[in-house]
Amino acid sequence: MTVSRTQRQTKTRTTALACLGLVVGMTALAFAFVPLYDLFCKATGYDGTPLRGTAASGPASQDRMVVHFDTNVAPGLPWRFQPETPQIEAQLGATQTVFFRVTNTGTAPSTGIATFNLQPGLTGGYFVKVQCFCFNEQTLQPGETMDFPVVFYVEPGIKADSNTRDLTEMTLSYTYFASKNGQPQAALAAPTRTRPN
């Protein structure tokens, strides 16, 4: 059986269109992956992403967890950044407030934006932030200091989860980056760790 030239051209065109559709679909999926993954992490607390919510409404537990606070400033942003305390012992289910102080040590106004992470990553699904300065641009004048609160609670269910019930500590880590158009400008170098004096 011989295939006519027209039939070969039709098959070639169909194959080319299918391949083009596959490339376009994969490209669209690649662009959609980042926001979808971000939504998934925010909804589930996966990979150390704290949940967002309202103030704790259930009863507090007698259990406690030590929450450490780690602050970093990316190279190129002349800021000093530190928590009011390096750690607290948080009662599970009770709302806590901790302030963070940021000072522009440079000679010109500068704008920064903070990102965050929680470790161990499994604790992200139980750490609920009620109020946070993260992902909000802050502009500081030379020498200006501002205090920003973080209001949070740790869900008592962390002790019922077989993966997290033996944990006694977690670390909430923030990094300030120089900001441009509301987006952090990550430097190639590692963040500079700052500690309270």
Rank of each mutant, 00 (worst) to 15 (best):
T85Y: 07
I88G: 10
G48P: 08
S61T: 10
A90T: 13
Y126F: 15
T97Y: 02
P109F: 03
T111M: 12
G53K: 00
N117L: 00
N104Q: 13
W79I: 15
V73T: 13
L77N: 11
A56V: 08
W79D: 14
P78Q: 12
T115C: 01
V98C: 06
L122H: 02
S61R: 04
Q62D: 15
T97D: 08
S61A: 08
M65S: 06
G45A: 09
L118A: 03
A55F: 04
A43D: 06
T107D: 14
P120H: 02
V34E: 05
Q91K: 14
S57M: 07
H68P: 05
V102G: 01
I88S: 10
V66M: 10
T103V: 15
T107P: 10
T71Q: 13
P86C: 04
F33H: 01
P78D: 14
Q82L: 13
A60F: 02
F33N: 01
Q87C: 07
G48C: 05
N117A: 05
T44Y: 00
R64N: 12
A43R: 03
M65I: 15
Q82P: 07
Y46G: 00
T71W: 08
S110D: 14
F100N: 01
T105Y: 00
Q62L: 10
P59D: 08
T105P: 08
A56F: 04
R64Y: 11
